[in-house]
Computed example of a mutant assay.
Amino acid sequence: MNAHHLQPAPVLLREDADGIAQLTLNRPQSRNPLSEAMLAALSQAFAAIAEDGSVRAVVLAAAGPVFSAGHDLKEMSAHRADADRGRVYFADILGRCSAMMQQITALPQPVIAAVEGTATAAGCQLVASCDLAVAGSGARFCTPGVHIGLFCSTPMVALSRNLSAKHAMEMLLLGEMVPAPEAARMGLVNRVVPAGEALAEARRLAATIAAKSAVTVKTGKRTFYEQREMGLKAAYDHASAVMVENMMARDAEEGIGAFMEKRQPVWER
């Protein structure tokens, strides 16, 4: 056997086609944990995509029967043997995870999760951090930290920005599995499709977005997250200022002209 066969498969796969970058978590045998290697790979991929004008939308999928089980508890527990019982390591890994989640929000392109199987703890956080999410009918979601004495406080940040307060607290306090239709009702996912079809539906949504003006989508996504952190008046002031700039953009002039002339717009890029 040559050395080539001993190379482990990449933890994250990237495949680009038609303006869509598909990222696939590729550690099915260990339930696609957000290990050091996976966090690094995701972070690098998002950094590259942010600079890549050819990518209009991102689909985040996973190999195997589990979307992601969250943090790698084996990897973390090994650091209990450190002199500080792991304090510095835990702070570092949680900081890296939080930074990666924020990269998704900051990414110019929309990110769509395609979820089959279970997404638990930081894996559920990953889904909540995406702009859109599609679930197969068998998908389930859970923030189970409360069962093991480790409250899902970082997943809570993403959950509480997607769900109503009562729904988020229900998931966090009970730690129970939430089936896909219930997750859709709660607002954690956009839609539920037959099992095995989440990726196809996510790619369909991505293709629809990819056909829009890239600069318009980028402006809209950024402004959505900016205004959400503001008070009402500040949010309106900010959104109005953005809209004035948007109105002056070439694609807005083209799009409005095309609408009035009843023709298809031709976007700048």
Rank of each mutant, 00 (worst) to 15 (best):
L34G: 06
A211H: 10
E226M: 05
M247L: 11
F141I: 08
A200Y: 10
K166L: 11
V192I: 10
V55T: 12
A83V: 11
I148C: 08
L150V: 11
G138K: 09
V217C: 05
A62Y: 00
N190Y: 09
C124N: 14
A3T: 12
R228A: 14
A234M: 07
H238C: 06
H79M: 04
R250L: 08
M1H: 12
A180E: 04
T216H: 11
R96V: 04
A139D: 04
A206P: 06
S129G: 12
D237A: 14
G123C: 07
G86V: 03
A252E: 03
M230T: 07
V55P: 00
C152N: 08
R185C: 09
K166H: 09
M247Y: 14
A122T: 02
V242T: 11
Q103N: 06
H5N: 14
V58E: 00
V55L: 02
R14D: 05
K212L: 12
A249R: 12
D18C: 10
T143F: 01
L126E: 00
L232M: 11
C124H: 03
L150Y: 03
R80F: 14
A235F: 04
E51M: 05
Q125V: 03
A202M: 10
A165V: 09
E253F: 13
E261D: 15
A258N: 06
P155T: 03
